[in-house]
């Protein structure tokens, strides 16, 4: 049976939709996708045969998609079954990931502040006490003061972006941070599907409010030890799992 290029593209489009919504490792992912590819091909071939054609067209590929479960449904179902087999990550591995991430945030902050530090040295800022710094600032020309102000403002904004963006953007987009990656951890929704930005914001709120993360972690250790969820994980419906044993 021959497949038109358009039909093949349609099938690959369905597959990429499944891939987008599953959060399992490379080899296992390839296995799932190959099996589904074979299913979509078989179903499309069946459709073409049913209408008496020996070329599978895009119409057959679309009918095949309608006759078997939708890609999203398939992905969700896979992740639900995986969720039951995944081991939840406990306190220690998550603490190590947290320390790694905070070191990374510190390093990134230093990098984005480097231009400001460079400028401070270049312009001969005394960096002793506040009075000396103030006197130094007052002695600057208008151009000098404006340049310094802009660079200092840009550095402050960049540090804020690093601090707030790190957990939210990385977890919201990839489902893990560098620290979690090193420790073999992933953040998933409790039904096993990928988390989005909404979940990433909710579960990380306690990291941004004064020491709330300590209380939040204590809540996990005391009340949700078996579920291994912080209070804000409960609110966001998320869990941290181990993808390597």
């Amino acid at each position: 049976m021959e497949f038109s290029e358009e039909a093949k593209r349609e099938i690959e489009k369905n597959l990429s939709e499944v891939v987008r919504n599953i959060n399992v490792d490379g080899r296992e992912r390839a296995e799932i996708v190959n099996e589904l590819r074979s299913t979509y091909y078989e179903a499309a071939e069946g459709e073409a045969r049913a209408r008496g054609s020996d070329v599978v067209s895009v119409v057959d590929a679309r009918s095949a998609r309608a006759s078997i479960s939708s890609p999203r449904e398939t992905a969700e179902s896979f992740m639900k079954s995986y969720a039951d087999t995944l081991r939840r990550a406990g306190f220690w591995s998550r603490l190590v990931a947290f320390v790694i991430d905070n070191l990374a945030i510190f390093a990134l902050s230093m990098i984005v502040m480097a231009p400001l530090f460079g400028l401070m040295l270049l312009m001969g800022m005394p960096m002793q006490d506040e009075a000396a710094n103030q006197a130094w600032f007052d002695s600057l020309s208008l151009t000098g003061a404006v340049t310094f102000g802009i660079v200092a403002f840009a550095a402050a904004v960049s540090v804020m972006v690093v601090i707030f963006g790190y957990y939210i953007v990385l977890e919201g987009h990839f489902g893990y941070t560098p620290g979690k990656y090193v420790m073999g951890l992933r953040v998933l929704q409790t039904d096993g599907t990928k988390i989005g930005y909404k979940e990433a914001i909710l579960r990380n709120l306690s990291k941004y409010i004064n020491n709330l993360i300590v209380i939040d972690t204590l809540i996990m250790l005391v009340f949700f030890y078996r579920e291994k969820q912080r209070g804000f994980d409960r609110i966001a419906n998320t869990m941290v799992v181990r993808i390597r044993s």
Partner: peptide, 15 residues
Amino acid sequence: LTESNAYPALHLMEN
């Protein structure tokens, strides 16, 4: 049985 139910079940049985 839909594919979305069958495949995960098959994979679990393989495990």
